[in-house]
């Protein structure tokens, strides 16, 4: 058990912090939602009613989609673009999908390589892109969930202001949808830019997200 916890500590830490942050968000969000309800002359809602509401769903989904987009782009773009000196980049000259030898695929697969890389046809192609594909699917589903929950939440606000509700197709081209979307995207892109550039010059001792403290600034090899 102790060994399991130690071996899975990174995942367990983020699973726990995710759960705690989501729970805390639901409590703060419920209080904020109820304050707005009372200000609008409405009635406050219970925590179970809030966490199953479109208001909570859109707030969760808009952040999820942007995080998955961030990692999707980071995974895909770093295959093709490099940043000299960055710990987040491959060395210049290795842009692209790289050779089967570099990727230990096909005849270069080892005995402990995943089975998919030793076969032919579509399977190795899909497995070669499985990380991006899964992150991409989660991004699209989260964005779709944001649009659906956002439509419901926006329409509740419209009715509270004595205005007509809108259809899903009208909502996805609305200012509210794109404001929610882009305010998350810009912060994710800035965070990636910061990691790419700051990892050239700054260090975090012991972290695999950093070069060795004594590593030269122009070293790009990870």
């Amino acid at each position: 058990m102790r060994r399991f916890v130690r071996d899975q500590a990174l995942s367990l830490f983020f699973l726990t912090t995710f759960g705690l942050a989501l729970a805390a968000q639901s409590i703060a969000g419920n209080a904020d939602y109820n304050a707005r309800q009372i200000a609008d002359g409405g009635a406050p809602v219970s925590w179970p009613a809030y966490v199953t509401s479109s208001s909570f769903a859109v707030d969760v989904a808009e952040n999820w989609q942007s995080e998955y987009l961030q990692f999707l782009l980071f995974i895909l773009v770093t295959a093709w673009l490099v940043q000299r000196g960055s710990h987040e980049s491959k060395p210049p000259g290795r842009e692209g999908p790289e050779s089967e030898r570099d990727q230990r695929m096909g005849p270069y697969a080892g005995p402990d390589s995943p089975g998919a890389v030793r076969t032919g046809g579509l399977r190795p192609f899909l497995y070669s892109n499985s990380l991006g594909l899964v992150m991409g699917v989660i991004f699209v589903l989260s964005w779709l969930a944001q649009s659906v929950a956002g439509t419901a939440d926006y329409n509740a606000g419209q009715l509270a202001r004595l205005q007509d509700p809108v259809s899903w197709s009208d909502y996805v081209v609305s200012a509210d949808f794109w404001n929610r979307t882009l305010q998350n995207w810009q912060s994710e892109f800035l965070a990636v830019l910061s990691m790419v550039v700051l990892s050239i010059y700054l260090r975090q001792r012991g972290s695999p997200e950093s070069k060795a403290v004594g590593g030269p600034h122009d070293e790009t090899e990870t």
Binding site: S53, N155, A156, L159, D164
Partner: peptide
Amino acid sequence: VQIWGSEAQ
């Protein structure tokens, strides 16, 4: 009739 959350029209 349209119902969205706690609001209806």
